[in-house]
Design a protein around this nucleic acid. Structure first.
Lengths: 203, 203, 203, 203
DNA sequence: TATGAATGAGATTTCATTCAT
DNA sequence: AATGAATGAAATCTCATTCAT
């Protein structure tokens, strides 16, 4: 039922997963316990429905990232993509935050979160690889980039660190573009070399 | 009691804050409920003791970051600092992760987490400002950098995304250095300009 | 719920407040712990509900005491009033007894008990004053009278000192009437004077 | 140990039996749990030691009540006896009050309290019988008298109903003397007859 | 004698879930 | 479909008592 999903979103936002009582959700939805269990088999089930939504939206980001060139066009593409991220997080952050709390305990949800994570990270890594060929820690690069995006937005919401949407987008755009999509270069007349990459032994 | 603190760390690591039972901790410490409540007034109290430790270690990072120059020396300094971060997270990550789960519900802990966050972010922002003068979203830059570090390490631990310590350090070092400590530059023969900064209205 | 109130009365009667377990009450009411906490927020809460009932009944006695004359009519009026007291105590004694145990620890309940006490004592004192003008220890006279009534009935119930209802009423009637409602008089040909009352210094 | 007994008295006075923690007593006595159990086998045991003291003092009252004549001498004798009662209660009231709370649950203590009660009541009844021959509810008369004395003093202590020692003694003396030790008499020119006594069937 | 850290049985309380209506 | 009173398993917490030192 729609009212229950909406109520769930509100309550999980306000209280987190563990502190949310079925009673709170039911009251917020102005319905009864009985009805709750008519539509969801338990508290977790409602939560998962919300989390799936959020995950689906996030997954869509993986597809929407086109090739990035290390110039102003690339920067613009990143800006657009980052903007999407910020907006999706603004919409689903409450659920994503609650998920962080919950994923510990639930295999399914943990798996799904993990797969979303890997999925987006891989997409990012693939794009980076087109500009700066990566050896085997490609995934790590993608993950680092995604980590920044996710956590920065988390802090914006959860702790109300005052950063406007505009500034958030500016800052993240620059950091993603310069930090991941620009090849190594000379700085102040000297070659700034990446540290020579060692061949990794299998992990 | 030491055994209880150690047991707490283990159990919170394995189960998160909410799913950890006092009983589990007590069993892990091979002691009794009575003893638990002799030393801590409740589960939260033990957890806070651990969280304070972790926060103190993290705070120490704010002080240990010297000036960064945009050359190989700066890169090396960043590498060292990132290494510290990775190692502290390796030691205290279980608690920091559980804190994420808990900070929702506890004013005190939320405040403390927030202050640690702002403290380190500010230190980072100050260093960045020495290289690339920032206008008023300085804190945002610091926060973006810290977000990447924290969340990346979280994913390494929580989801067991297989990234070796060495690769983690390599990846983060490069991303922090290039993404935050290198001034804007020409790429591929064209000037890559930062987007012109608007003067912000007071926030 | 009615069954819980009844069960509470039974259990407090048998075991006193402190020794009564919520479990006992719940079993006596043939219901569950959950139900108990649905209707009462804790053991104290249920107890207070019972105590309020008892207090209300007792308070009603204050109103039902008309003027007493020092003759057979007065004696009859006292007899009727004492009878009421004995019967109310028979109905609510278990709760009143438990209250004695509890009032130590609870400000609210202590206050209420105190006010019932003072209320009835004052009503008694006022009636006595109509027959034997009292100086300022009027309240003390009322309290003495009430003390006798209460404690006598307590002993009848708690220690099962075998005194029939009839004998209890006879004895108390005489003691209340002769002890409080008959003016000083000559005994055996000599004047039996009350000890001269000193003027009290303000207390 | 003396310090423990004194501490027990203080703590039971302040908190009642059930709310008194062994820890409180031990702290008040500036000693340790171990020492407590060296001298007393449990909390109850310490309490009983105090209660026995109080009971012994109270029992002594039974012996100290000489024959009462229904004249000024009798009144003086009653005044002295009442004075003793008030003073003993002042000294031991805290324990007696706590005993009320506890006697519910302890056979031994209940028995002892009961026997003290019956003992004093009987002594009173015997004296009353010398003046106003009583049929079989003699014990009831003694008990009524004792009830008044005990409960009145209880209220003085527990609820701090402000009655000075002097007023307490005045009031109780008159009530005991007139209420129990003066034969039936004419009032206002008419004979005030006691209700005819029925012969009781055995209870 | 004296100590006080450790114990664990047992009490209270919560809340997701069920089911008769 | 909808209700909400009832449930009881499971968690937290207390405190009288013990025992090694």
């Amino acid at each position: 039922m729609q009212r229950l999903l909406a109520a769930g979103r509100t309550v999980f936002e306000a209280q987190g997963f563990h502190n949310a009582r079925v009673d709170d959700i039911v009251k917020a939805a102005k319905t009864s316990h009985g009805t709750f269990y008519l539509y969801f088999s338990n508290k977790e089930d409602l939560f998962k429905a919300l989390a799936l939504d959020a995950a689906a939206e996030m997954e869509s980001l993986a597809a929407s990232l086109g090739p990035i060139t290390p110039d102003d066009d690339g920067r613009e593409a990143i800006r657009e993509w980052v903007t999407q991220f910020v907006d999706i997080y603004e919409a689903h952050g409450s659920v994503i935050r609650a998920q962080t709390e919950w994923e510990f305990n639930d295999r399914d949800l943990g798996k799904r979160a993990h797969s979303t994570l890997v999925h987006i990270s891989s997409a990012l890594a693939a794009r980076i690889h087109e500009v700066r060929p990566l050896d085997d820690h490609g995934l790590a690069e993608g993950l680092a980039c995604l980590s920044m995006l996710e956590r920065f937005n988390y802090f914006r919401q959860a702790h109300q660190v005052e950063v406007s949407r505009e500034d958030a987008i500016d800052t993240l755009t620059r950091a993603v573009f310069e930090g991941f999509f620009v090849p190594d270069r000379r700085v102040a007349g000297r070659r700034v070399a990446a540290r020579p990459r060692r061949v990794r032994k299998a992990g």
